[in-house]
């Protein structure tokens, strides 16, 4: 019983960061129709920013998260302006190839800059974990969970309550009409990509201190983000949030009771099952096939 409770607690905490990763990716797809293969690299970028800011530069741990997110947004906006803005209206395969190219270049640039050696980030939390009855969890993970929740709620607020969010939603529903209504589609796209990138960087900056920072960390993160987004339906933010938690529970319980080796395969198996039975994702409102 204790073991089950511990698994559930681990999954809940992991789910928060998964949701954060998924939202960033689904947002970009929903509004821009771009499958963002650089998502995992922005995640790794966030983690490396965190390392550089906290370890050699000695910046405050909490400030560093904010700076890492800002840098992530900046890198995202650069990618959008440099690569994607010229491809507006191109088919989805073309943008995908460009994004794959960018992904390969970014990952190897990271490897070149930081070498393959894994780096570790110190955190300011007490090293004794938080203990509740038979359960225990590190303070760092508790912090990660609540910051992730805060960022998710912030994103919801931004999209549903602000002017920018309204313009995003309008673009999402009907790009041409939105443009006719005077919405600057270009700016919406840049802003969306920057926002999605900032969320990915935030996830990396949060998880960097929990695990270790390595150039290939983005691959696994991107793979999971894809699984989450398919679970929730491409472009569906609520779906991505729930999808993040579902994936975390499936992985943790699967690893705990079925086989720990297949932990990272769970997400992909889930994708294949979902597509067998509900090709539009678990929470799709409208048909997206074809």
């Amino acid at each position: 019983m204790d073991q089950l409770l511990q698994h559930l607690l681990n999954a809940t905490i992991l789910g928060g960061t998964y949701a954060l990763l998924g939202i960033g990716l689904t947002l970009i797809f929903g509004i821009m129709r771009v499958v963002n293969f650089t998502h995992g690299e922005l995640y790794a970028f966030g983690a490396y920013c965190m390392y550089a800011l906290v370890m050699p530069l000695g910046l405050n741990f909490f400030m560093a998260l904010v700076v890492a997110m800002a840098l992530g947004a900046l890198l995202g906006a650069t990618i959008e302006l440099l690569l994607l803005s010229r491809l507006r209206g191109a088919d989805i395969d073309t943008t995908m190839l460009v994004m794959i190219g960018a992904w390969i270049a970014l990952q190897n640039a990271e490897q070149l800059a930081w070498t393959g050696v894994a780096l570790s980030i110190n955190n300011p939390f007490p090293s004794e974990p938080l203990i509740v009855g038979p359960l225990s969890v590190s303070w760092n993970r508790v912090y990660v969970f609540f910051v992730a929740l805060l960022l998710i709620l912030g994103t919801y607020y931004l999209i549903n309550r602000t002017h920018l969010g309204k313009a995003m939603r309008a673009t999402f529903q009907d790009r041409d009409t939105a443009a006719l209504m005077g919405i600057r589609i270009d700016r919406i796209h840049t802003a969306t990509f920057a926002l999605g990138s900032a969320l990915a960087a935030a996830a990396g900056a949060l998880l960097g201190p929990v695990f270790v920072v390595a150039p290939t960390m983005g691959d696994l993160a991107a793979a999971k983000a894809f699984a989450i987004v398919i679970l929730g339906g491409l472009g569906n933010i609520k779906g991505a949030t729930l999808g993040g938690f579902i994936l975390a529970f499936v992985e943790e319980l699967g690893a705990g009771y079925i086989s720990s080796g297949y932990r990272d395969a769970m997400g992909f198996l889930l994708i294949i099952l979902i597509l067998l039975f509900r090709p539009t994702g678990l929470f799709a409102q409208k048909e997206r096939v074809g």
Binding site: M96, A223, A227, A265, L269, I271, L275
Partner: peptide, 23 residues
């Protein structure tokens, strides 16, 4: 299986398939 979906879904399904086989 995979041709039930097209576009981005198809691409992601095809990647997932390769990953599952690798696992």
């Amino acid at each position: 299986l995979a041709f039930r979906v097209r576009g981005a879904y198809f691409v992601i399904v095809s990647i997932s398939f390769a990953e599952v086989v690798r696992m």
